[in-house]
Amino acid sequence: MYNKYPGLSPGLLTDLRSASVNNDCYARSAIEADLHKHILHASLELHRDIVVTTKDVEKLSSEPTFGWETRTYFPKVLGDIIESLAGTIVVDSGFNKETVFRSIMPLLEPLITPDTVQIHPIRELQEYCRKQHFIMEKPLVSKNNGLACATVRVLANGNVYEKTCQADHKKTAKMLACKEVLTSLKNNNSRNKLMTSYFLLI
């Protein structure tokens, strides 16, 4: 990415790397290549998670998704398949980087680009709050009827923005809650700008 996009800022290059090299990205690639069918294990919980995840991926659009919009939880073992394959090819090829890239890149296509990259909602909310001088409290995570429950709360200009989301796993619940709070903050900011423009006009 550094060689392909030499003019990018270090921050955007970091976003590209984070969006391209993560468990969800690798896990989805493993499912689309049917690699999950070759995992040998004796865990009922893992079997259930893989079945649920596979069904969720099949329901998603066939169009590539480059963001964090899915509610699907991807078990880490699925992402590990891609990393294990890459590691095996590294050793078998005598540590030939080009051979590894040629073998693994087709599994990861289409790749994320500067035009399609999206920042993870948790980090985006943290950066937005820092830029606007808002106070983001530490998310509260609990269990409710077997589901993970995450509450995200932000204090902004005397107002409280709080959202609670549930999901099968706490990471997903926290991500969804951050997305909703971020959307509320941005919508409110847009309304404030419109009102300011209106009063300036009159």
Score class of each variant (00 low, 15 high):
residue 2 Y to C: 13
residue 2 Y to Q: 14
residue 3 N to K: 11
residue 5 Y to C: 08
residue 7 G to N: 15
residue 10 P to Q: 08
residue 14 T to I: 01
residue 17 R to C: 03
residue 24 D to C: 12
residue 25 C to Q: 07
residue 29 S to Y: 07
residue 36 H to Q: 15
residue 37 K to F: 02
residue 39 I to R: 07
residue 45 E to D: 14
residue 48 R to E: 06
residue 48 R to Y: 03
residue 48 R to V: 01
residue 49 D to Q: 14
residue 52 V to D: 05
residue 55 K to E: 13
residue 56 D to I: 06
residue 61 S to C: 10
residue 61 S to T: 09
residue 65 T to N: 15
residue 66 F to C: 14
residue 68 W to R: 06
residue 68 W to C: 06
residue 69 E to P: 07
residue 78 L to A: 10
residue 86 A to W: 00
residue 86 A to S: 07
residue 86 A to M: 03
residue 87 G to L: 03
residue 93 S to E: 05
residue 98 E to F: 02
residue 100 V to F: 01
residue 102 R to A: 13
residue 104 I to M: 09
residue 111 L to H: 09
residue 113 T to Q: 13
residue 113 T to S: 14
residue 113 T to F: 12
residue 116 T to W: 05
residue 120 H to I: 06
residue 127 E to N: 11
residue 129 C to N: 02
residue 133 H to I: 06
residue 133 H to A: 09
residue 133 H to V: 09
residue 134 F to A: 00
residue 136 M to Q: 01
residue 138 K to T: 09
residue 141 V to H: 01
residue 143 K to L: 15
residue 146 G to N: 14
residue 148 A to M: 09
residue 149 C to G: 01
residue 151 T to D: 04
residue 154 V to A: 00
residue 155 L to D: 01
residue 159 N to M: 15
residue 166 Q to M: 15
residue 166 Q to N: 07
residue 170 K to P: 10
residue 170 K to N: 10
residue 173 A to C: 11
residue 177 A to L: 10
residue 177 A to R: 03
residue 178 C to W: 03
residue 181 V to D: 00
residue 184 S to D: 05
residue 184 S to C: 04
residue 185 L to E: 00
residue 187 N to G: 03
residue 187 N to I: 08
residue 195 M to S: 03
residue 198 Y to L: 13
residue 198 Y to D: 08
residue 202 I to T: 08
